[in-house]
Design a binder for these strands. Structure first.
Length: 517
DNA sequence: CCCACGAAGTAACGGCAGTT
DNA sequence: AACTGCCGTTACTTCGTGGG
């Protein structure tokens, strides 16, 4: 029975620095000779005992604390450089002995040696700050890192591991600590991307109750790590501390079940592409990378919902007939009824705090735009011991959280959706009133959760993006408006089922670095 | 012109659970 | 047993708007 490793990609403060390219970017690319090298976060190697044990590495991305997306599977380790083997080479032992004055057989042993050697120094100089101690400790580990790095560089040259004609260590030469970096963990014989997003959900997600969505797998009773980039299945250690025997066995059972479920996912051929779809760095990819900019990206306003609301209001107010088409082609279809516009159209921004307010003789159409933020509103938690005693019942549709047999939390979400609905609903007129909530495709807001949520119709950026794209194709007039062309480009990001920001950002940086070497 | 308020942005902080 | 850094929460800041 082999182990499964779930590894998180595109995370960490390291990536915030423009010059740093996450090493994991290589996972989604083939080398120039068509091989798949995999880099396992965070440092590119595993603890000694895992080598030779792992069947499959699932490359994942965090959606949130309890929801991870599986992007690809890498199986059949063909080749790896084991850090401890490198350190145990005779010449490396000599180097380490000379510097550390101690025999090192295990990578993890560096810390211990440091502690022993510096015991007296730190006892005598208690004032040495902890921070400084940490820095010094890191320098010791860096020696081991350096030896592994040197060995990898040799291998990269002899095996010709290149992307777009450049050695991987050349490409990443602007990375912080590139001189100490590890570049690959192993070479995989098979690499398959998922056909469509596969999600695994752990405890704490509201999706549990209706987890019959496509490709969502619930790993009940298992916690996904919040800090670590790795989790191994079967899970290595279960702490028995503070646990009753029954809880302990239940947790063991849950973990076994989770492991079996992951195996099912891996073996389910329907979930994975038939071919190895990882790309090679070629001229076409470089070209796409250069063209892929839009002005909102440049001014870093791609995530700003106010900007999108302003632009939508601008185009609908100023392009004659555009809103008419939009209502016909998109809103009517979403509402499953014909919305017929009549008379002069007025477009308001932030009227009564409502993002977009369209009004003509016969209709009021409200669009609440949510890109990053959630629905605002107070969450009122009512806790009552045994609802019968208090004479209260839990209304249907509310989120009911059962803490124990007689403790029930009733979560009421008194939301801005309700507020806006009431504002418009209370207007005494014969106009038809339609409410829409516009969100990116990756940001699935559960309307049922909110008061009056059901009065809103979900509208996705994909709908709006496709509409604008089609309009641009059909109307030469629109093509001349470069703001409209760029705005449409900027919407594409939010029309994706993945929030691919880091994924795409890393790809962009990677290709940029290759061109600059 | 002042002030209150809403909403988005931001900084700080504690919890978490695997890793060394 | 100490360490780590993400994540959710909370409190605070900033900005714009609209009422008085």
């Amino acid at each position: 029975m082999g182990k499964i490793l779930l590894n998180v990609m595109y995370a960490g403060d390291y990536l915030k620095e423009e010059n740093n390219v996450g090493h994991e970017v290589i996972n989604m690319f083939k080398t120039d000779s068509g091989e798949n090298y995999i880099y396992v976060n965070p440092y590119g190697f595993l603890a000694d005992e895992h080598y030779g044990q792992i069947d499959t590495v699932l490359l994942t991305r965090r959606i949130n604390a309890n929801k991870w997306e599986i992007l690809a599977k890498a199986t059949d380790w063909e080749y790896a450089l084991k850090p401890d083997d490198i350190l145990n080479k005779k010449e490396n032992q000599e180097i380490l002995n000379k510097i550390l004055k101690k025999e090192i057989h295990k990578f993890s042993f560096c810390n211990q040696v440091f502690d022993e050697e510096n015991k007296t120094i730190f006892e005598e100089n208690k004032e040495i700050a902890n921070e400084e101690k940490q820095k010094k400790k890191l320098r010791y580990r860096a020696m081991a890192h350096k030896l592994i790095h040197d060995e990898q560089v040799k291998e990269i040259e002899s095996k010709g591991i290149t992307y777009g004609g450049k050695y991987i260590y050349e490409i990443l030469n602007k990375n912080q600590n590139n001189n100490y970096a590890t570049y690959f963990t192993f070479k995989a014989k098979t690499f398959r991307e998922s056909k469509e997003p596969i999600y695994i959900l752990a405890d704490g997600t509201i999706e549990e109750k209706n987890s019959n969505k496509r490709n969502e797998y619930f790993l009940s009773g298992v916690n996904l790590p919040k800090q670590s980039f790795k989790i191994y299945f079967p899970i290595n250690t279960i702490k028995k501390k503070d646990e009753q025997e029954e809880e302990y066995t239940n947790r063991k059972k849950a973990q076994k079940k989770a492991y079996e479920k992951l195996q099912e996912i891996i073996n389910n051929e329907n979930l994975w592409k038939e071919e190895n779809t990882s790309k090679k760095i070629d001229d076409k990819l470089k070209e796409v990378n250069r063209e892929n900019k839009n002005f909102l990206q440049i001014i870093k306003k791609e995530e700003d919902e106010l900007v999108f609301s302003n632009l939508l209001a601008h185009f609908f107010a100023n392009k004659k007939g555009l809103f008419n088409e939009f209502v016909k082609e998109v809103l009517s279809k979403k509402a499953k009824k014909a919305i017929l516009l009549k008379g002069e159209l007025n477009v308001f921004r932030e009227k009564e705090n409502i993002d977009l307010w369209f009004e003509d003789d016969d209709n009021i159409i409200i669009i609440e735009n949510k890109i990053k933020s959630k629905i605002n509103g107070r969450i009122e938690k009512e806790m009552f011991i045994n609802d019968k005693e208090y004479g209260q019942t839990i209304e249907e549709g509310k989120n009911e959280i059962k803490k124990s047999d007689n403790e029930i939390f009733n979560e009421r979400l008194n939301s801005q959706l309700k507020k806006y609905f009431n504002i418009v609903d209370n207007i005494k007129c014969r106009k038809a009133k339609n409410f829409f909530l516009l969100t990116p495709n990756y940001n699935d807001i559960e309307l049922v959760k909110y008061d009056e949520g059901n009065s809103y119709i979900k509208l996705y950026y994909e709908d709006v993006y496709n509409f604008f794209k089609n309009q641009l194709q059909d109307q030469v007039e629109y093509q001349k408006d470069l703001y409209m062309v760029d705005f449409t480009k900027a919407m594409k990001k939010h029309a994706s089922p993945y929030n691919h920001d880091m994924y795409e950002e890393m790809e962009r940086r990677f290709v940029k670095c290759i061109e600059q070497v």
